[in-house]
């Protein structure tokens, strides 16, 4: 069965683009994800509930609404979009970068949640012990906190990646469905289902989608088990 070789260039593009968008979305949201998770787990400040609400908004809003809000803020005429384009030359609207932004925003609450839970599970007395041994706050984070929350970070990254692979509503609203630029796997499948005789293409891409998602899950399992064995938390 050589159905893989039957993929059209457009279909291949969709597969490559999806993986690129999901990877960039996952990596770009990791540093702010850890920072926000730390703030929510440890911080005591005014407006913490508000921050928590804002972070979780994409989880409860209809994806179309999130996409439309992104369009308003980061579109060509949007305040943030115009600023970034003018000063840094970063353009989101109708580009793959916009798709990555939409995916990152949609996956952000999942990532923050996973990391936050692992931070809350860290025994802070270990950090105090590290402090008395001469480690400054930064060193304590790098040598004690970070290694201990690694399983949570891995889980958060996989969740973010998986969410990005499946993201549809916000992406198509924000950056449309342009083959080769913003047409990710779900958009491509959706396009196939809208034309007569597109069933075969839709099925091919669906299978590929399943394979990629399974691979991500397996990788996360292996990583988590390896880290878990290192920590011997059994």
């Amino acid at each position: 069965m050589n159905w893989l070789t039957d993929l059209t260039p457009d279909e291949w593009n969709a597969v490559r683009l999806s993986i690129k968008v999901a990877t960039v979305a996952m990596l770009a949201s990791l540093p702010p994800g850890i920072l926000i998770a730390l703030l929510l787990a440890r911080g005591r400040f005014w407006g913490k509930t508000l921050l928590n609400g804002v972070v979780h908004l994409p989880l409860v809003l209809p994806p179309v609404v999130t996409g439309y809000l992104l369009l308003l803020a980061f579109g060509k005429r949007g305040p943030a979009g115009a600023f970034l384009a003018e000063h840094f030359g970063i353009v989101f609207s109708f580009r793959w970068t916009g798709a990555a932004l939409a995916c990152a925003v949609m996956g952000f609450p999942l990532m923050v949640r996973a990391i936050r839970l692992s931070i809350e599970a860290v025994d802070r007395r270990l950090e105090a012990a590290a402090g008395t041994l001469g480690a400054s706050v930064g060193w304590v984070f790098a040598t004690v906190t970070l290694p201990l929350i690694l399983p949570g970070i891995i889980a958060g990254m996989i969740l973010s990646f998986a969410k990005a692979m499946g993201e549809f509503g916000a992406t198509i609203t924000f950056v449309s469905n342009i083959p080769g630029e913003t047409q990710t796997l779900p958009s491509a499948i959706y396009t196939f289902t809208q034309v007569p005789g597109g069933d075969e293409g839709a099925l091919r891409l669906t299978l590929i989608s399943i394979i990629i998602s399974m691979a991500a899950l397996v990788v996360s399992e292996v990583l988590a088990r390896r880290v878990g064995r290192r920590l011997e938390l059994t």
Partner: peptide
């Protein structure tokens, strides 16, 4: 100032 705790608090990782 070194401190030995009642619960040893060794780093598990």
């Amino acid at each position: 100032v070194g401190l030995v705790f009642q619960d040893a608090r060794l780093f598990p990782h």
